[in-house]
Write a protein that binds this DNA or RNA. Structure first.
Lengths: 216, 216
DNA sequence: GACTTTGGTTACTCGGCCGTAACCTTACGC
DNA sequence: GCGTAAGGTTACGGCCGAGTAACCAAAGTC
């Protein structure tokens, strides 16, 4: 029965690197569906086609596993965005490409993205991790705005900039959620819509327009 | 010792309505700090100055308790907003008052708001509840936009409107998070900043400006 | 002043799920 | 071919926390 060796390798004895990815895939899926707490290590293991102790052996405790998921997905996303928005393009072009890449990513990883992020928001252990990523995004956006502003000879307080950037990032995340909940929606179109809101609003600010509260 | 009767009523034998509010206060606080799962009924009870079975007697299971929190806080918030933004005002005035009321509320309930909402996003049982509230907000905002648009003789697809409204609401929630994380920040100022982004961006749309993707 | 209702407590049960100990077995180096 | 490490398993310990049973006492009520 030597034939058996070369027959269907029924998912047996895979190298560590491969198994780790499978586990992460499964973990993302299960965490997404169930939420961090309700997800059980057993289910993740089963979904990965492996038994629980292997998960512990390779990826450690439940929290560590979740962080690993967050990390992988986050890195992938960042890379997708960074790869699209070359820093030597004009601001609107950069913004547009960045948004398109972002929504493209979310569209392709509907399962992964939204829920991981929705999850991570709440629970303390991961809030930090998530906040760091968001901070990087905010920084990038703020940098773009600042750059564009300086090009126009204007300048604006740091907090001011941060807040506007925060609002833009928030709006974008919100639309990402919307996209994740509307499977029929088109990422490209969503990106265009977001660009409309962001660029027109930001554009106004760039040109020095401001709204002031009425004297009540 | 009849005097004892009129002496300090050391938190004894309070009527149900009062205790329920105390419990909800405690629950909001603990859920906020710990997150839904990590919060224990014992801790909530203790914080409310009462023992666990009372919580079960008055407010039911843990999930029901959380929903009750969500409900109370949500209602309060909606009332604060609705009370401020009278429907017969011009759109920008309504938006401004609504935003101011909203950020005022968040500023005053820092502990409660953000974390409750951050919590509710993730866990399935409550996502629905939360989505319903957000939907109401989105609808209101979309209504305002639509109203303003028609006044200008323009019209826009429903989805279009919904998406823009969604983005604005998202940006606002995001700034609310920011506000909750920056205790020194001023709600009023935050509202002004949000108004800048929203109104200038929306204003552009109102006047028919649109951004179109470059032919790549 | 007995009787019931309402506010309140202590002290448990019981189940789920994380994490691990102990134990197999296939492949590979030499 | 034989040792050894890497891939893999079953089966269990133990904790923590939701929910409950049984019981107590103060305030109204007639």
């Amino acid at each position: 029965m030597l034939a058996r060796v070369s027959s269907t390798p029924t998912s047996k004895r895979l190298p560590r690197a491969v198994r780790e990815q499978q586990m992460l895939d499964a973990a993302v899926k299960v965490f997404s569906r169930r939420g961090f707490h309700a997800a059980s290590m057993d289910e993740i293991a089963e979904d990965a086609g492996i038994s629980k102790p292997m998960v512990y052996a390779y990826l450690g405790t439940k929290e560590e596993l979740f962080v690993a998921c967050l990390h992988r997905e986050g890195t992938r996303m960042m890379e997708a965005i960074a790869g699209a928005a070359a820093p030597d393009l004009p601001a609107d072009e950069r913004l547009w490409r960045g948004l398109r890449a972002f929504f493209g990513f979310v569209g392709a990883h509907r399962d992964g993205w939204a829920v991981l992020y929705r999850q991570a928001r709440g629970s303390q252990p991961f809030a930090g991790e998530l906040a760091a990523m968001r901070a990087r995004l905010v920084e990038v956006v703020a940098g773009m705005l600042d750059h564009a502003l300086r090009a126009e000879g204007r300048e604006v307080g740091e907090t001011e900039l941060e807040v506007v950037a925060y609002a833009l990032v928030g709006a974008t995340e919100s639309l990402a959620d919307w996209l994740a909940d509307h499977p029929e929606a088109d990422p490209e179109k969503t990106a265009t819509r977001m660009m409309n809101v962001a660029w027109l609003g930001a554009g106004q600010l760039l040109h020095g327009a401001t709204w002031r509260p009425p004297a009540t």
